[in-house]
Design a protein around this nucleic acid. Structure first.
Lengths: 151, 151
DNA sequence: GTGTTATAGTTTCATATGAAACCAATTGCA
DNA sequence: TGCAATTGGTTTCATATGAAACTATAACAC
């Protein structure tokens, strides 16, 4: 066996990120999937629409890092459930103009605090210094991947 | 609008983890999907078998954080491709005993260095201090979620 | 020992997903 | 102008996925 390279999965950053991210996301998802019958993609779309009302599907895709097919389907289901409203942009009739409906806001106002609460519970286990480093490191890694995507 | 809680997706830890993790994993996956016709689940199974030869499917599932259905299917495909071998455990004939085949090791020896190289490229953008904090913080968050799962 | 319960792994079924093809509106440009 | 290339969004199709049902073996209770 000539100097074989062994990959220690438990210590492999991409793997650790993936597992951590999945367990965290699933924990939160369980909250709103069961209680409000929302999928992760649906909630993500609602979350950006709560923050940026009136944006197009394309912008939802950009801001949620979902692909346009996923957004198209999430939008269709949310329309179906009456949680969002859709118009056509006047300046460009290809684009949609999306916003939460009354009913959508009612759900948003229940889910958003729950999600933030869960995040807080997670962050509560880190001290102030650790939180700062985490934010900084995520920013950096984020930018690395962003620039890699463009090249 | 009575003191509405707004969720800023770009600053929401679970979301940032998810996006970062996905872009990182996909970047690596592209390497071996195209070149070696391996899916993420297949490679993960191979990775743990490279490190822990002779374990059962159940243990593969535990160590990869995949569910048993996913493992079952990955194992089936890897057997098909001749990249792993399967026996039955003598002490418990329900359990399988899995290991990489000759051909499996040949692929492993090509993919493992590529994966580690990609990780390195990512970590190269962090200085020593940042790397230490990252490791420490991931450990902590990991444990939080682990203990949450048990309760 | 027999009956019950638990575990390892597979199969089934219904749903989720992404790539590619597609349609419609817009832009670029000769 | 008119026509090719681009863009926003949807649909199709083939594949991935997970929950639940299932099979086979093992462990436990009595």
């Amino acid at each position: 066996m000539p100097g074989r390279v062994l990959l220690e999965l438990e210590a492999f950053l991409p793997y650790r990120l993936s597992v951590l991210s999945n367990t965290v996301s699933q924990a939160i998802a369980r909250i709103y999937e069961a209680r409000f019958d929302l999928s992760v993609t649906e909630w993500r779309a609602m979350a950006v629409l709560g923050r940026y009302s009136g944006i197009s599907a394309r912008e939802v895709a950009l801001r949620t890092a979902m692909d346009k097919v996923a957004v198209s389907r999430a939008v269709a289901r949310l329309l179906d459930k009456g949680l969002i409203e859709r118009d056509t942009a006047e300046h460009d009739r290809r684009q949609s103009v999306l916003q939460l409906s009354e009913a959508g806001w009612t759900i948003y106002d229940q889910v958003a605090p729950l999600a933030l609460e869960h995040e807080q519970r997670l962050l509560d286990h880190l001290d102030a210094e650790e939180k700062q480093w985490l934010a900084r490191i995520l920013d950096k890694l984020w930018q690395v991947e962003r620039s890699a995507l463009e090249s």
